[in-house]
Simulated scan of single mutants.
Amino acid sequence: MSDSRRPLPHDFHPPVPEFTVTSDDFRADGVLPDLHVHALGNTSPQLRWSGAPEGTKSYAVTCFDPDAPTGSGFWHWSVFDIPAAVTELPQGAGSGDFKGLPAGAVHARNDYGTRDFGGAAPPPGDGPHRYVFTVYAVDQEKLGPDADTSPAAVGFNLRFHTLGRAQVIAEYEVRP
Rank of each mutant, 00 (worst) to 15 (best):
residue 34 D to P: 03
residue 34 D to N: 01
residue 34 D to M: 02
residue 36 H to N: 08
residue 40 L to Y: 08
residue 40 L to S: 12
residue 41 G to R: 02
residue 41 G to D: 00
residue 42 N to A: 06
residue 45 P to W: 00
residue 46 Q to I: 00
residue 48 R to G: 03
residue 49 W to C: 13
residue 52 A to Y: 06
residue 52 A to Q: 12
residue 53 P to G: 14
residue 54 E to I: 05
residue 54 E to K: 04
residue 55 G to C: 06
residue 57 K to C: 03
residue 58 S to Q: 00
residue 59 Y to M: 09
residue 61 V to E: 03
residue 64 F to S: 01
residue 64 F to E: 01
residue 65 D to L: 14
residue 67 D to H: 01
residue 67 D to K: 04
residue 67 D to F: 13
residue 68 A to D: 02
residue 68 A to I: 04
residue 68 A to P: 05
residue 69 P to C: 08
residue 70 T to H: 14
residue 74 F to R: 14
residue 74 F to I: 04
residue 76 H to T: 04
residue 77 W to Q: 13
residue 77 W to M: 12
residue 78 S to P: 04
residue 78 S to D: 07
residue 81 D to C: 13
residue 82 I to G: 13
residue 82 I to K: 05
residue 85 A to H: 10
residue 86 V to K: 13
residue 87 T to W: 02
residue 87 T to P: 00
residue 89 L to S: 11
residue 92 G to E: 02
residue 92 G to F: 13
residue 94 G to P: 09
residue 96 G to Y: 07
residue 98 F to L: 12
residue 98 F to S: 09
residue 99 K to F: 12
residue 99 K to T: 04
residue 99 K to P: 06
residue 100 G to D: 01
residue 100 G to I: 10
residue 101 L to K: 10
residue 104 G to T: 05
residue 108 A to L: 09
residue 109 R to N: 08
residue 110 N to L: 08
residue 111 D to E: 13
residue 111 D to F: 09
residue 112 Y to G: 10
residue 116 D to H: 06
residue 119 G to V: 07
residue 120 A to V: 10
residue 120 A to D: 00
residue 121 A to G: 04
residue 121 A to E: 14
residue 122 P to I: 14
residue 122 P to R: 05
residue 124 P to K: 06
residue 125 G to F: 09
residue 127 G to C: 07
residue 127 G to N: 00
residue 128 P to Q: 02
residue 131 Y to D: 00
residue 134 T to A: 15
residue 135 V to I: 14
residue 138 V to C: 09
residue 139 D to R: 02
residue 140 Q to P: 03
residue 143 L to F: 13
residue 144 G to D: 10
residue 146 D to Y: 10
residue 146 D to K: 11
